[in-house]
């Protein structure tokens, strides 16, 4: 199984390379590990330097933000596409930014730049409370007929912590299992390599795929899915990196099977 997955993944990478070749202005991807920098604008901006150039990562957010603010005292793996817009807070904007906080402390990561007259782009939530509560999005139960579903959870580099977007998916999954009277839940954890822009291959630790899969399995059991329904596996080998979408291969895929088992 893992064999097949790896082939599939490298196939994708080839495809990706082919596409970039024919595009008019090729997309530029960056992948690097560095100390993040914060700029003390009214709402702080997060920046990072790579090869002498300053890049804008995103604005300070909150637990609902898509952008995951980095941490001073820690280096971060930044994986992103170079954007085309105007500079923001002094940095070239990056798009589709994926931040992974490195676990070990690096006390040299402590740069807070002054605002220097920069203004942050317009924002909804300033450096304080949100304006008003958003009504919770109504949850819609999936409607029959029920067919097999796949849920994909992506992780930070070398981390098994489940961000809120992932725990949301697990809640949906549990509801689907209940409604569809699912037959089996197959969990598969992977670990991956990040190909950095300087050619370095950053490899996730050996046990991380297992830890991811087991953590998800434990949560599903806690949420009421019988252990007997759950099948858990993980890849021993790291999936290869391409420096473009490496963050998609640090994942847990959960397949929910419904209906009678195949004969």
């Amino acid at each position: 199984m893992m064999m097949r997955m790896r082939l599939y993944a490298s196939g994708l990478a080839l495809l990706g390379a082919a596409c970039t070749a024919i595009a008019a202005t090729p997309d530029r991807y960056l992948s690097f590990v560095t100390c993040p920098i914060i700029r003390d604008t009214e709402l702080p901006c997060w920046l990072a330097e790579y090869e002498g150039e300053l890049y804008f990562l995103g604005m300070q957010g909150d637990s609902a933000s898509a952008f995951n603010s980095p941490q001073l005292k820690h280096r971060a793996l930044i994986e992103a596409k170079v954007g085309s817009g105007e500079r923001i807070c002094g940095g070239i904007p990056l798009e589709s930014v994926h931040v992974s906080v490195m676990q070990e402390i690096d006390s040299s990561c402590e740069t807070i730049l002054p605002a220097e007259g920069f203004t942050p782009p317009p924002y909804e939530r300033g450096p304080g409370p949100a304006v008003r509560p958003h009504p919770a999005a109504p949850r819609k139960d999936p409607a029959p007929p029920y067919t097999a579903q796949e849920y994909v959870l992506e992780f930070e580099f070398d981390n098994e912590f489940l961000a809120r977007r992932n725990t949301r998916k697990l809640e949906e999954l549990v509801r689907f299992v209940e409604l569809s009277k699912a037959r089996a839940v197959r969990i598969e954890g992977t670990r991956a390599i990040s190909l950095l822009s300087d050619g370095t291959r950053l490899v996730e630790s050996e046990t991380i795929a297992k830890r991811r899969a087991e953590r998800v399995a434990r949560i599903l059991v806690d949420l009421g899915i019988p252990t007997s329904m759950i099948e858990t596996r993980w890849s021993a080998e790291p999936l290869p990196g391409n420096g473009i979408d490496d963050y998609t291969r640090r994942r847990v895929t959960i397949r929910v099977e419904v209906g009678a088992a195949a004969p």
């Binding site: 952008f67 603010s69 304080g128």
Partner: peptide, 12 residues
């Protein structure tokens, strides 16, 4: 350390 918050975070 809460995902999305960041260190430091300017808040109240």
């Amino acid at each position: 350390t809460i995902i999305g918050m960041g260190n430091p975070i300017k808040r109240t």
